[in-house]
């Protein structure tokens, strides 16, 4: 799955774009989140983190598969 890490999540995952092999089985965003947080524990410190799948905001029940593009969107405050 293609992962796009915006804002502070880019500092945590290390790059704007990356590929994560999630296997063949579709999973929910909630389950994906759990895997991702295990890999990058610092993400757990973010109390607000939104997810988008294929360029649309989504909720944790959405099912994603390896072909999807998933974006991590934290708030950004600078001005």
């Amino acid at each position: 799955m293609k992962i796009i890490s915006f804002g502070i999540t880019k500092d945590i995952t290390g790059s704007l774009f990356m590929d994560l092999d999630m296997g063949e089985k579709p999973i929910s965003i909630a389950a994906f989140k759990e895997l991702l947080f295990k890999k990058y524990p610092a993400l757990m410190d973010l109390k607000t983190l939104s997810f988008a799948v294929n360029n649309a905001y989504t909720n944790e029940d959405t099912i994603v598969n390896n072909q999807d593009e998933l974006a991590l969107i934290p708030p950004v405050s600078g001005g």
């Binding site: 804002g7 502070i8 109390k47 607000t48 905001y57 969107i73 934290p74 708030p75 405050s77 600078g78």
Partner: peptide
């Protein structure tokens, strides 16, 4: 809040962005 649920109180992303900013972006 549709972009970022919650309140200012619970948002713990650093406001004091000492990471820096490239001047032309804002």
């Amino acid at each position: 809040r549709c972009l970022f649920p919650g309140n200012a109180e619970i948002s713990n992303i650093p406001d004091c962005n000492d990471n820096g900013i490239i001047g032309v972006l804002p």
